[in-house]
Design a binder for these strands. Structure first.
Length: 637
DNA sequence: TTGGGGGGCGCG
DNA sequence: AAAGCGCGCCCCCCAA
């Protein structure tokens, strides 16, 4: 063992670099299991995946080189896992309490190495929550101010360990060794002390932030996020199973249509780059030069131009936009039909072709979308690389995701969850009655709008009802409603939307009043909070729509996280959560376990509703079904 | 070559 | 008087 005396800020501590197995065993067995430890790991890429950019993040493509444990007093152990062996730490990791920065990363590696649900807090989650609560939104934009304390905008708003440390303690962290190579035989003293320091910093930040979590009443939400880290770790590790042969067939089809459309477009648009808004603006101007009234009414971008452009060229008129809803008005023109076709299929080819193939995992063959916890303003998860939350929803596309031989996918979704929450929060009698009686709220709305009995509402009419419920629920005005409805392919007169607006607000008077109460609250406090207490600061301009929306959307996000946790508790023996899409959860199970998983998942959704809204008019919020492919399972709901 | 902003669009 | 909200990814364009 080599020891170093270190000091950072006002903290003096010892870094103990341990390489001997017997010595490590002795140290680990002597560590008190009841206190909180700062924890960090450094990973080294597997030699076969040195070129793989994200290999260090993936437990299958890298291994844990160092495990750092800070005891909160004065000792930061840096264990060289390569020479010690990971098994030495398993019992301790199972029994202890830890905190790490971006702990999903640690949880994922440690889970893969045999400790599935380590008790670990996260100083990054704490920082995000506290930061969201702590400063008044009415302060001026820090970007406009001078930089009195030498902190960049990044360190004011970012949540990396160094940014958080700088913000809390006003000291600068030397980040030089952050991306150093942890696979070298002999680690340098600088590397070892850097590694040891990180465990100290995450501990210190957590100690500073935990009282603030309490102060701002963020405990319930924080607890939810802390537990949810394991759901995220599980999803990221398991990944989404893909039928790559099927994908290749789909892609072939997309490419064919795209190329055909491109050839057609060539005739009409010549060498104009169809993806370039600048060039398309030129084309539009020329094409309609004899019909100024068309150009007059053509929608334009909201911004005049980029700021840099403005500085350079001075003010300039706003550009035309090429949104599908506008283009859709000109379907009698062959050039527009060709253009729309090109846009649709180039999107598919560009986003879900080669780019998806490249993301195929080298050892599992799955896609492994990442999920971010605590990053969004409302508290939802977000997904990336690839984004599993915005895959086209048609059955053909979703069937690309297919369980392997002998397995099935179980899908469950929270039915009309945002509307249910509108009802529960406001206790609007009309909304509540609908859900209590298990009726269809979109049909009810359509019935009022078109003045027909509920039983006689047609499918297109129901669709209008749905658009009205969703758009007006958060404060859209009648003028925009018509434009918005076009996105769903609905054409109605301005007078119709005017009427719909009035009908909505007179039908749901109590809900409308609740929205106003949320706006008043946000205006008074400068922020609004979800059911479990996550705060979101709001500017005056945001309040009208975002205040009610944040409560609803944010609480729906909490409900889904809670449901996933409960699902994990009851079916972790035989099912794995593989995806989550805001109101939808996807499980992978052996075929024979599917019926049980369906039960568990829908029960978990209902149990979450009971937890958050014990007095809800209905707790039956979800259905589940199973099939080999995602699209087919969804279709059965 | 890289990074950021904007337009556009997919999902809930 | 007027106001959908929340994401991430693709391409283009421009500046450094």
């Amino acid at each position: 063992m080599r020891t170093f005396k270190n000091k950072f800020h006002t903290w003096e501590f010892q870094t103990l670099y341990v390489t001997d197995r017997a010595e490590a065993m002795q140290i680990v067995s002597s560590l008190d299991r009841s206190i909180l430890y700062g924890l960090d790991i450094e990973t080294a890429k597997h030699p076969d995946f040195k070129e793989h950019k994200q290999a260090g993040l993936c437990p299958r493509l890298s291994t844990i080189r160092l495990l750092q444990i800070f005891d909160g007093v004065g000792r930061s152990y840096v264990f060289d896992v390569w020479s010690i062996g990971f098994d030495v730490f398993i019992h301790f990791l199972k029994a202890g309490r830890f905190v790490a920065h971006n702990a999903v990363f640690e949880a994922q590696h440690i889970r893969y190495n045999g400790v599935p649900d380590i008790n670990i807090g996260c100083s990054m989650l704490m920082s995000q929550l506290v930061h969201g609560a702590e400063f008044s939104p009415f302060e001026e934009d820090p970007e406009e101010e001078a930089e009195p304390d030498g902190l960049s905008r990044y360190t004011r708003t970012g949540h990396s360990l160094d940014a958080v440390t700088q913000r809390l303690f006003k000291v600068v962290v030397n980040k030089q060794n952050q991306l150093s190579d942890w696979s070298v035989e002999e680690l340098s003293t600088a590397q070892i002390t850097y590694a040891g320091l990180d465990a100290v910093l995450t501990y210190r930040c957590a100690k500073e932030l935990l009282p603030k979590i309490k102060e701002y009443k963020l405990e319930r939400h924080y607890k939810l996020l802390k537990d949810s880290q394991h759901v995220v770790a599980e999803m990221q590790l398991q990944g989404l199973p893909v039928d790559w042969k099927y994908h290749a067939e789909l892609l072939k089809g997309w490419v064919a249509v795209k190329e055909k459309a491109a050839t057609e477009c060539k005739v009409f648009f010549g060498d104009t780059n169809l993806n370039s808004s600048k060039q398309m603006n030129e084309w539009l101007r020329t094409y309609f030069k004899d019909r100024p009234e068309v150009l007059q009414n053509w929608p334009r971008t909201t911004r005049e131009q980029s700021i840099t452009d403005f500085r350079k060229n001075g003010p300039k008129e706003r550009a035309f936009t090429f949104v599908r809803t506008e283009l859709g008005k000109y379907l009698q023109l062959p050039e527009i039909v060709a253009l729309l076709n090109y846009k649709k299929f180039s999107k598919l080819v560009d986003t879900y072709g080669e780019s998806l193939t490249k993301k195929r995992h080298p050892t599992t063959g799955n896609l492994h979308p990442g999920y971010t916890l605590g990053m969004t303003t409302t508290g939802r998860l977000s997904s990336r690389n690839p984004n599993a939350q915005n895959f086209p929803s048609d059955q053909e596309f979703r069937n690309m995701f297919k369980a392997p031989e002998g397995y099935e996918l179980v899908v469950s979704d929270l039915a009309q969850i945002e509307l249910r929450l509108q009802a529960e929060f406001s206790k609007d009698p009309v909304m509540c009655a609908v859900f209590k009686n298990g009726e269809d709220i979109y049909k009810q709305m359509a019935s009022s709008l078109f003045k027909v009995p509920v039983e006689q509402v047609t499918k297109p009419q129901r669709k209008v009802g749905k658009v009205v419920m969703l758009a007006l629920g958060f404060g859209m005005r009648s003028k925009k409603l018509g434009q918005y409805a076009l996105n769903s392919g609905i054409h109605e007169s301005a007078a119709f939307w005017e009427k719909a607006y009035k009908t909505y607000h007179s039908t749901f008077k109590v809900y409308s009043t609740w929205c106003d109460r949320m706006r008043d609250r946000a205006t008074k406090l400068g922020y609004i909070e979800t059911l479990l207490g996550k705060r979101r600061k709001l500017t005056k301009e945001q309040i009208y729509t975002a205040a009610p929306n944040t409560v609803i959307q944010g609480t729906a996000a909490e409900l889904l996280l809670l449901a996933m946790l409960k699902c994990k508790q009851t079916c972790s023996d035989f099912a794995t959560i593989v995806a989550s899409v805001h109101d939808e959860v996807l499980l992978l199970v052996k075929k024979e376990d599917a019926p049980q998983a369906i039960e568990c998942l829908s029960a978990a959704m209902c149990a979450a509703m009971v937890d958050l809204f014990p007095k809800a008019v209905s707790h039956k919020v979800a259905d589940a079904s199973a099939a080999v492919a995602w699209g087919d399972a969804k279709e059965e709901l």
